[in-house]
Design a protein around this nucleic acid. Structure first.
Lengths: 175, 175
DNA sequence: CCCATATTGATTGCGCGCAATTGAATTTCG
DNA sequence: CGAAATTCAATTGCGCGCAATCAATATGGG
């Protein structure tokens, strides 16, 4: 039994439903692909954020970590990673850079010596004020209404979660 | 005069339209942000593509380059970059890896010695067959209908292009 | 209590992405 | 024609992302 209702046991047979090009016999076209749209949109966002975050001394991923900590101070690397869907291989050096900049502190937990508690410094807390303006400027730049943005966000999150759940079964032979 | 109708000369005054959180005085929330949704969706796509492309010996950005070449063989680095919105700093090493794998050839143009023509090898052309299946499997994994995917794609592309156009003016002082 | 197992974060290696610079070839214009 | 400006690809440096591996700590069963 498939893990998902969306899994296609007979890919060849039902492929037409997901065919986004006119010529069935040629390679898929770049412009037709949702994947490339998402890929290039994400990079465009990163480029748009860069000049806004640079005065704050943050990169975009660092800004995401700060968002997480502004919501709840004093989280473990694991907790931050599960919120952002990043692992320690990405977070450890990133957090060290945030520590070097002076926005967070890192110390081993006393109850469990395996985990590292990441906490905001005064400078890190204070940064929250300046950062408030950032997403507003971006909203302006995109020129999309509040409800359109919310709708798009919800669709993306839904697809992301379905992809993540399906991830382990996609491409595997259907036993 | 602003370059765009979407530029906000008085950010503070019109900010409410782009406020996606209930508490106006606290930092923006991660879960409210379209930006994080796009960011995490793009990474989820990359993770989903990886096991499908690995048997073909491609990474996702390399797959995008192959898509471009399958559409039109024999393009310059500049042309490929403008389609994918990548620069030579990213493409040059990537193309060298594709050349090492044996999917493309790179040679200086005879008419203009500055440019490098990237062409498919026989192996690169042949790969198109196997790659046809990849986006179909992904469509299955996402479990979204043809029209929903097309709609989402168009919205993302529209926002991306608006962001790219606005990029140069966002965050600048309004003289 | 002791050992097998699991969890947590750090480390290494590789491939992007992008800013900034360089060098060579070409175009523009005086 | 020839100098200056422009274009194109390559290079360098840095910061992610992620797979794979490792060491230290915690936990549960015998």
């Amino acid at each position: 039994m498939p893990l998902l209702p969306y899994t296609c046991p007979t890919n060849a047979g039902r492929a037409e439903r997901f065919q986004h090009r006119t010529d069935m016999n040629s390679a898929p076209k770049l412009s037709d692909q949702l994947c490339f749209a998402a890929y290039s949109f994400a990079h465009a966002l990163n480029r748009a954020y860069r000049p806004l975050l640079e005065p704050l001394g943050l990169t975009y991923p660092q800004y995401l970590v700060m968002l997480v900590l502004w919501e709840a101070d004093g989280q473990t690397v694991k907790e931050i990673g599960s919120r952002l869907r990043l692992d320690s291989g990405t977070l450890t050096p990133l957090l060290k850079r945030l520590e070097a900049t002076g926005y967070v502190s890192r110390q081993r937990g006393s109850r469990d010596e395996r985990q590292v508690i990441v906490a905001l410094t005064d400078a890190g807390r204070a940064l929250s004020e300046k950062a408030t303006r950032v997403p507003l400027d971006l909203g302006c730049a995109m020129g999309a209404g509040r409800e359109e943005i919310a709708d798009l966000r919800d669709r993306l999150v839904a697809l992301r979660d379905r992809l993540a759940d399906a991830g382990c079964s996609v491409g595997e032979p259907e036993t």
